[in-house]
Design a protein around this nucleic acid. Sequence first.
DNA 1: TCATTGAATGAAGTATAAATCATATGATAG
DNA 2: CTATCATATGATTTATACTTCATTCAATGA
Lengths: 102, 102
Amino acid sequence: MIYTSFNDFFAVLSSKQRVKILQLLNREGPHCVNQIKNKLKVEQSAISHDMKRLLGCRFVFVERKGKERVYSINKTTIQPLFNLIREHVEAHCVRKDDKWND
Amino acid sequence: MIYTSFNDFFAVLSSKQRVKILQLLNREGPHCVNQIKNKLKVEQSAISHDMKRLLGCRFVFVERKGKERVYSINKTTIQPLFNLIREHVEAHCVRKDDKWND
DNA sequence: TCATTGAATGAAGTATAAATCATATGATAG
DNA sequence: CTATCATATGATTTATACTTCATTCAATGA
């Protein structure tokens, strides 16, 4: 798959599962599919499908180690991206008073 | 709607239409629904639905001007967010050689 | 007050993406 | 070369999001 537009990249990040995978890789370093499977308690094939999409837009990298494939996060992009959202939420989406509700 | 997780915010940005709206507001400043409708050639109600989602996570702000509702972009978040993706694509997703293909 | 204009809402149909299952590939060990 | 383990792939089902249409609401002006 070739990603052409901004929304394609955001689409890959719009899945709770994939965000969890990225957060795991970010916190605990590189993992192979089986390790992710065991820690997140999801099917192997679901993870492979997710990794393919994450890889497709280079949010992760992969390296072969024998039969395993070890995935690592692209911190250069993901960390500042997540930080931006975190700051945005803090600035605009935490209701300290009752100014907005929906 | 209350957004709770990273992926909720990315989901809102995962639509080509909504990204176009944000880019329009970013380039040309605040617009009311009718102006967006005319420039992007989409249905009024489709835009209203999109604006609701964009508003829900504060990617845009709204102000009443008579019968019109004028939407403006939250530049503080959107500009750095889009810049990050732009830089990421430049760094990782432009093939200068034939190292990867999918 | 009633008609008009701009926009929001809700429900229905339609399109897209995710979850699951079965199977295939590819590396290693025996 | 065969069996096994790790992962990938493709097809199908299932869930989610988008589009569209009809209707409603809210503000203004006659």
